[in-house]
Each structure stands twice: as C-alpha cells, then as structure tokens.
C-alpha cells in the first residue's frame, strides 16, 4: 500500500515536472527576460523550501525533542526575530530584486516594434520596423529576430486581454483605449506558444498564438515576403477557391492584399497559408483544418464573430481551403 502510494506520488511528480518543459513554459526560457523570471522563481522556491524545512524542524524540536518550557527571553526573541525581523528582511530583499527586474522587461526596442491588438478572440498584429511609414499587417502569429530586443505595443478592442509568451518573458495586460508596453529578446531560435492570460470571454482558452524566433537574416527575409501582396496559388482547386472566396463575400471581413478584398473585421489573410496555426492557435494550418474551420467555426471557437459557413459543400470547402492554404 505504502509502495503504491509512493509510486503514485513519483509518477505525479514526474508528470508535473514534464509539464514544466516545452514551448509554453516560463521554466524553459528561450530568452533573457524569461530566464530572469525563471531565476527569480527558482530562488523563491528554494527559499520557500528552506523556510518550510526550518519551520517544521522547529515544530518538531519543541514538540518531540525538547518539549519543556522555553525561557521567556528566548521565546520572545524567536517571535520578534523569526516572525518580524527575518520576514521583513527577506520579503524586502525579494521585493527589491523583483522591482529591479521590472525595468529590464520594458527596455526600449532595438528597432522593431510590434503592435498587438487583442480582439475576441484573436490577435491583430502589425510589424513596425524602425522608420517604417506603414506597418506590415498580419495576425495570430508573432515572428521575431533572435538576439534583438523587440518592443510590443499592446492594446485591445473590447475587453482586457493579456499578452504572454511564457518562454520569452513576463505577461502584460492589454486594455481597450490604453497602450501598454513590454519588450522581449529571444535568445534561442524556436517555436514558442503564446496564450491570452486574462479571462476574456467564452473562448478565452482558445485565444493563443505561435511565436517564432528566427535568426535575424531569416527574419528579415520573412518580413520582406510578409510585406508583399498575396501570390495567387495555382491549381484547379485553389483557383476555384479564390472565386468562392469572392462569391461567399469573405472579403467583407478579411483582407488579402493584392486582391479586391479589403475587409478589416477579421484577421488579414494575405499570407495565412504561411502561418503555423489558424483560428489564433486553434488548429495547425493544414488544408483539412482550413476546411473544418470555415464550416464549423462556432463549434471550434464558441462565440466567435465569424459565422459557420456550413452551407458549403465538402468540395467547395476543400477548394476554399486549398486557396487559403496556398496563400503563403
């Protein structure tokens, strides 16, 4: 019985530790900001464990080892020293350290600013390279160059959201009508995952995004391509999908630069096929996922503004999906 309990505890510990790894974890940092926060966390955890052991050690000592009455002076000293002085020093030191980290998380950018606007429940993204007159408009994915500090100017449409890429840094709330700022510096190339960290409505849990840290050269090339107009995908299905996109009025809400579609309500789809996910981190961006999203929008993301186009035949949905997946 005791063995089984121990085994269960070990398994649970292993599982929960496994949860600390991965691409959406503050404890497997991919950048200096997350590393600083990680250090803060580990020091606090270590200190808490030490304090817990010391407290329980003292409990054990005064109840089991030496249960006789303690001299009054020693008792008073323990209460004042251990109960007031020590916590004040420790908490003061931790507060000072924590506050000293805060400005680091808001350092000015090295040239690139990304504006992120929280919507219900997705992310409007604009890249503003230094000196740019107009942004490169995208959505639901963040790309950033490794080794450069990138500034994020954040706000929101209707309710409070929170912008958080745990592997890259701390979270920052996004408010309607008020801009907040956080900066991040990725150190290791990789694909991380961001998540809205402030409850914002029924599909809050589905409001995520992929954050791709790229070597600077690759990032510059990507941004150049992202700034360009859409290249019409070739192939029978994709061409039929382009006509369907017009026929179904998709352009009322979605823009595809280089076509007549200029809607602004939903995400810009100019290069949607080049993103790693669709529906703000809801599904991996495969043609099948595009078709599922178009026809079952509301069940995939309850409350979403986009209506489900469930009147489309399977062939039409597949054609539209081929077109969208081809917009790389």
């Amino acid at each position: 019985m005791r063995l089984t309990g121990a085994a269960t505890a070990a398994a649970a510990a292993a599982l929960s530790l496994a949860g600390c790894a991965g691409r959406q974890s503050a404890l497997s940092p991919g950048g200096a900001d997350a590393a600083a926060l990680g250090t803060l966390f580990w020091v606090m955890l270590g200190g808490a464990v030490l304090l817990w052991l010391a407290m329980n050690g003292m409990f054990f000592y005064v109840t089991r080892v030496n249960a006789s009455a303690m001299p009054r002076r020693l008792a008073n000293g323990m209460v004042i020293g251990g109960g007031i002085v020590l916590p004040t020093i420790l908490l003061g030191a931790l507060l000072g350290w924590g506050l000293s980290i805060l400005p680091d998380q808001r350092q000015p950018d090295d040239g690139l600013t990304i504006r992120v606007h929280g919507e219900q429940w997705w992310w409007r993204v604009e890249y503003w390279p230094e000196g740019a007159a107009a942004p490169v408009v995208s959505a639901n994915e963040i790309r950033l160059p490794v080794g450069e500090r990138v500034g994020f100017r954040l706000d929101s449409d209707q309710v409070i959201h929170s912008f958080w890429i745990p592997s890259l840094g701390g979270k920052m709330d996004m408010f309607p009508g008020r801009e907040t700022y956080v900066s991040l510096e990725a150190e290791a190339p990789g694909v991380y995952r961001g998540q809205c960290a402030e409850f914002c409505g029924e599909s809050h849990a589905w409001m995520a995004f992929e954050a791709v840290a790229m070597p600077p050269d690759a990032f510059d090339a990507w941004l150049d391509a992202e700034a360009g107009a859409a290249a019409a995908p070739e192939g029978g299905a994709a061409e039929r999908g382009a006509a369907l996109f017009a026929r179904e009025g998709c352009g009322a809400c979605h823009a595809i630069r280089g076509t007549g579609h200029v809607g602004q309500v939903g995400p810009d789809l100019t290069h949607v096929g080049g993103r790693r996910s669709i529906g703000a981190g809801r599904l991996a961006a495969t043609p099948e996922a595009f078709a599922a999203w178009i026809t079952h929008t509301d069940s995939l993301k309850p409350g979403v503004r986009m209506p489900s186009y469930d009147h489309l035949s399977d062939a039409d949905a597949a054609a539209l999906a081929a077109y969208l997946a081809g917009l790389t």
């Binding site: 017009a246 998709c250 352009g251 009322a252 809400c253 579609h261 200029v262 809607g263 602004q264 309500v265």
Partner: peptide, 14 residues
C-alpha cells in the same frame, strides 16, 4: 461601404 471598419464588414464584398 467599400472597406468597412474593424467592426463593420465591407458591404461591397457581397
């Protein structure tokens, strides 16, 4: 009508 806004779809698309 031609472009819409962030809240209003472009009427002209349909």
């Amino acid at each position: 009508a031609m472009r819409g806004t962030r809240d209003v779809p472009a009427c002209s698309a349909c």
